[in-house]
Design a protein around this nucleic acid. Structure first.
Length: 636
RNA sequence: GGCGGUGUAGCUCAGUCGGUUAGAGCAUACGGCUCAUAUCCGUAGUGUCGGGGGUUCAACUCCCUCCACCGCCA
């Protein structure tokens, strides 16, 4: 195969699982990819930027069933939400691949067949742990219990060992080739710190990989053996091939394969840095150049998770700030590869200080002065003096640095360097004090020169920020009377002098208005599922005293109790027999919620519920008050 | 338990091959300006460089050891 042309650049995001609606994590990955791909276009590359969705699997099947719709209908809905978000975030992807489209399914089947014929895929017996109630195999990552069983992470039931026929990929045969790859290409895994992890994982030996299931119906059927369907990773990873036209658009495919960067979250690094290149080696494909694993955004220093309810919805920020401040914050705050902390305070502070104060205000003050003193048009001015030349020289330095940073995907540093220049321009104005010159008619040409230089500098600043904030950057160019879009200007040819006298300079409202923290919080409140204090007050929580307790016959965990809640008694059933003997509970004083809607458990009506901490193994620990607290006391 | 990483100013971090007084941004304090979104510019700090030991003329940097935290694996 002919070598791919050097100025063609192929970048991917992972395909997102349609089980989940888009959140800040998806947005982060995709925004990075967008910034890189915009930069690559500016620097003269033909770019192909692929994103999409992963739509197969049991979870989708079940969730669709629960909603009473077909899996594909569920996928369609979620795909719509992803596409809407990408539009709102100004994502310039070139193609959106869906694993349910026939070009993908056919491509995967073709490769599967090829590897099977070659002997890299063979039929065998998969032994694994299976949760009967969830009808699901438990991941190999879940540790074994003492009794030799595993606990299902979804439902907490014990899962026993079963075996089923399935197809394996001969991953074990690729240990050496993979290690050679890492050795030969030290940039294959980025950031570098992740290379060791992957290398030592591979050095420990690789087991063959089970890549089909008979239990999953919503998947790509194995060619000539339709009882089996192709399991998640073998299906999903090949999107990078089918998304660039493998087996359906040979021209596109030949132009862009192999990928230059697979941008991914660090959680799926192993799949991309081990399994994926092994699949490709088996299929005889040229390998990707780089797999880049980025870090997580934490919320107030803890990991975001659905169960904690602290998952950040990008729409909240978009509604309050617009697209560019969000893009800016995510890319400026941390280097790609490290974790970052997302807090309201941090976000407000960064955006107000960098965007509103430094950049926004610089644009505003310059444009205002050009209008005030020259009615928006600078035609005649003095020759440049030393400080003016210095401002231009600093642009040249800044341009080189920004360019080098973007080349290294150090977007945060590219922005940092740009801001050094923004500060210099602000200082240039402070030093030259144009507002003082404006008072003397004789200084008019000098004044013109200063404002002209400042405007020319701002024009280059807009250019530097374009990959990150395309909308604002183009807006600045338009305000400066530039008639072309930044995307039409190559990075290498960007010159300070391209800004010409006589441009019609527009006036504008502030580009990035300052935002108060309380406005942000107000917006978020609308989105969050907060409990109001009134709602909380509705809960009747009291100190109960257990009068009688006995185990419910025929159950492992349930205890039936009579509880005194202050002059009256009620009955409740609790699943705490793992940790407590019924007899020991009598006389104890737990917190009881009294006005919970009664439920029938094992044929017995439970009229209340006690509060307990849930342990990882599913057992419960109940906090008890001492005797000094009167039975029936209100808890709030 | 194994492998790897991190620990530097109140916070987030940079610090090359060992070399003079250990840096940046933010936050803080004070001063200047008034074109601008209460914005901008300037000045000023503060550090047992995680602890202990060693090598060296010289250690944030190299070696040993201990502590704390993080990641991957089992």
């Amino acid at each position: 195969m002919a070598e791919k042309s050097k100025n063609r650049f192929y970048i991917t995001t992972p395909i997102y699982y349609v089980n989940d609606i888009p959140h800040i994590g998806h947005a982060y990955t995709t925004i990075i990819a967008d910034a890189i791909s915009r930069y690559k276009k500016l620097s003269g590359n033909e770019v192909f930027f692929l994103t999409g969705t992963d739509e197969h699997g049991q979870k989708i099947e079940k969730r669709a069933e629960a909603k009473g719709i077909k899996p594909i209908e569920l996928a369609d809905q979620v795909v719509g939400r992803f596409k809407d978000l990408w539009k709102a975030l100004n994502i310039s992807y070139d193609y959106f691949i869906r694993t349910t489209q026939s070009s993908h399914e056919k491509g995967v089947q073709k490769i599967f067949h090829k590897l099977k014929t070659k002997g890299d895929i063979y039929k065998g017996i998969y032994e694994g742990y299976y949760c009967v109630s969830c009808e699901n195999f438990i991941s190999d990552d879940i540790p074994l219990e003492k009794e030799g069983n595993k606990i299902c992470p979804d439902c907490g039931e014990q899962a026993g060992k079963v075996s089923e026929e399935c197809y394996f990929f001969k991953l074990s045969a690729y240990q050496k080739p993979l290690l050679d790859l890492y050795k030969k290409n030290p940039h294959f895994i980025r950031p570098k710190s992740r290379m060791n992890e992957i290398k030592s994982f591979v050095e420990q030996g690789l087991k063959d990989l089970s890549i089909t299931r008979t239990t999953v119906k919503w998947g790509i059927p194995v060619p000539d053996d339709p009882d089996h369907s192709i399991y998640v990773w073998f299906d999903a990873l090949h999107n990078y091939l089918t998304g660039i036209g493998y087996d359906w658009n040979p021209e596109l495919y030949n132009n862009f394969w192999p990928p230059d960067v697979h941008l991914i979250g660090k959680d799926i690094l192993r799949f991309h840095a081990v399994f994926w290149p092994a699949f490709l080696m088996a299929g005889g494909f040229p390998l990707p150049r780089t797999v880049f694993g980025h870090g997580w955004w934490l919320k107030d220093k803890t990991k975001m998770s659905k169960s904690k309810g602290n998952v950040l919805d990008p729409h909240v920020i978009l509604n309050t700030f617009g697209t560019d401040p969000l893009r800016y914050f995510l890319l400026r705050e941390i280097p790609i590869g490290l974790d970052g902390n997302f807090s309201h305070e941090g976000f407000i502070h960064r955006v107000n200080s960098d965007l509103a104060n430094d950049l926004g205000n610089l644009v505003q003050r310059t444009l205002t002065m050009i209008h005030k003193y020259f009615s928006g048009k600078i035609i005649e001015m003095d020759e440049k003096n030393e400080t003016d030349n210095k401002l231009k020289a600093e642009f040249v330095t800044c341009k080189d640095k920004v360019f080098a940073c973007y080349e290294e995907f150090a977007i945060n540093k590219a922005l940092e360097e740009t801001w050094v220049y923004i500060n210099l321009v602000n200082k240039y104005l402070a030093d030259n004090e144009p507002w003082k010159l404006a008072k003397a008619e004789s200084k008019k040409k000098r004044l013109a020169r200063i404002l002209f230089q400042a405007a020319a500098a701002i024009r280059t600043i807009a250019y530097f920020i374009y990959p990150v904030m395309p909308e604002s950057a183009d807006k600045i160019w338009a305000l400066l009377g530039e008639d072309k879009s930044i995307s039409d200007q190559s990075f290498a040819e960007l010159e300070f002098e391209d800004f010409k006298p006589g441009q019609n300079i527009q006036r504008t409202k502030p580009l990035f208005p300052r935002i108060e923290l309380k406005d942000f919080l107000k917006e978020e409140e609308k989105k969050m599922d907060y409990l109001t204090f009134d709602e909380f007050k509705k809960m009747d929580l009291r100190v109960g005293e257990i009068i009688k307790a006995e185990k419910v016959e025929g159950t492992k965990k349930l205890i039936k109790m009579e509880v005194d809640i202050g002059g009256e008694t009620c009955r409740m059933i609790s699943g705490i027999a793992d940790t407590y003997e019924a007899n020991d509970l009598v006389g104890k004083k737990p917190i009881v919620i009294v006005n919970l809607k009664p439920a029938v458990i094992r044929g017995i009506e439970s009229q209340a519920m006690l509060l307990a901490a849930e342990m990882k193994d599913g057992s419960a620990i109940v906090p008890f008050f001492g005797d000094d607290v009167p039975t029936g006391s209100k808890v709030k």
